[in-house]
Design a protein around this nucleic acid. Structure first.
Lengths: 212, 212
DNA sequence: GGGGTCCGCTTAACACTGTTAAGCTCCCTC
DNA sequence: GAGGGAGCTTAACAGTGTTAAGCGGACCCC
């Protein structure tokens, strides 16, 4: 009863599972997506999935790592700006766009730490292998360049701290957008405009007392 | 077999359930806390809880609303600063302190929207009843005062947008702290210091072209 | 060509979750 | 003392992720 026509050796259905899982996770969220529903979507039963993935977490893990690479790629595209401070704003906006366009991806990349429990080593390994794919590293490099060029004031000379400030800035607006923009008790302003003004104010504010 | 000694009419065990639930939720998270475990902690079975609360969500809901009042109280204390811009920084730091000291409370107040699904009307109602307990409203009022006093530049004259910028700033650093500060692949800087510098840079940056 | 083996899948089942239904016990009231 | 209800119990249901056992066809080697 197995398929007789060729469709790849065995990695094919594995890919099909990943695609369907991403689709359902993005559409209805990870928790609401049941293994049985995922199996039904693929025309097979739930336990069949366990022949390709250890468990549900492994599925989530694989998608998370893929999305991190995708984000890093968007970063690399946004990083082609000469001036380091302008570059910070550029990759900041790339981050915001990623969050707005892929809210469910963003949610389980940056909003659900439980989904990544025990994933730290793998992330670290992956980053050591391909540092150019490490989004945080790119941020650090850009911040370091800005600091070396004397663009920031004396309170903003710590590369890690400034990197975390920049990250927190865009992460704040994106996660508020995802969680609260649909709430009726506040009149939400368009996220991308707010993000631009935030980045402008933040970078300007950090130039207080700059030497360059 | 029920207790014969007086311990209040019926609101007593209700309170005991709430206290135990808060404790377990904070310690292990909402999802990991099972109704049976909560019952065992109280020396009774899980279904007994349903005589006091409709379901698990009702428990979460009650705790969420209580915590929002607690946050609002911290805000009110922090709002006793004359200068509106300094006041913004003061309530911002109160927000950050709340998040650092009660990470699990913060998590299900601001990081897990699903927990509050269908809670919007109740929040809105509660806020209309006691607007002085509405933390966001306090933020808006402070921002409005700063704008009226000409403290912010022309790009930062929209009360809602500036309020959301301020909220996003502190929310960003707090939620990064909660989700990522323990990750080994980044050297996390002390959150409260970073938050202070963020607020300083943000408020300074928004004064670009201010008239007052 | 025939037998062994393994891959991909199915059915059945387990342990666990939140939740509901039925019933039991004690206390209060009349 | 009978009625009734509050507060709890045990039993059970539907749903979850996950595992165990078995079946059918494809492949390989003799």
């Amino acid at each position: 009863m197995a398929r007789t026509l060729a469709s790849g050796p065995d990695t094919d259905t594995r890919e099909r599972i990943l695609d369907a899982a991403r689709e359902l996770f993005v559409a209805h969220g990870v928790a609401q997506t049941t293994m049985r529903a995922l199996g039904a979507r693929l025309g097979m039963t739930a336990p069949a999935i366990y022949h390709h993935f250890a468990d549900k977490d492994a599925l989530v893990r694989e998608l998370v790592l893929a999305d991190m690479s995708r984000l890093a790629a968007a970063f690399a595209r946004a990083a082609r700006v000469a001036d380091p401070v302008e570059r910070l704003q550029s990759i900041g906006m790339a981050y915001v766009r990623f969050g707005i366009e892929h809210p469910e991806h963003y949610r389980f990349l940056f909003l659900t730490p439980d989904a990544k429990q025990g994933l730290e080593e793998e992330i670290q390994c992956r980053m050591n292998e391909a540092p150019e794919q490490d989004a945080y590293h790119l941020l650090q490099v850009t911040v370091a360049e800005a600091i070396e060029n004397g663009r920031f004031g004396p309170l903003y000379h710590d590369v890690d701290r400034v990197s975390q400030i920049c990250w927190a800035t865009v992460h704040g607006i994106v996660s508020l957008h995802i969680v609260f923009s649909t709430q009726p008790w506040l009149t939400w302003r368009e996220t991308s405009v707010t993000a631009e003004r935030m980045l402008a104010a933040m970078t300007h504010g950090m130039q207080q007392g700059a030497t360059g």
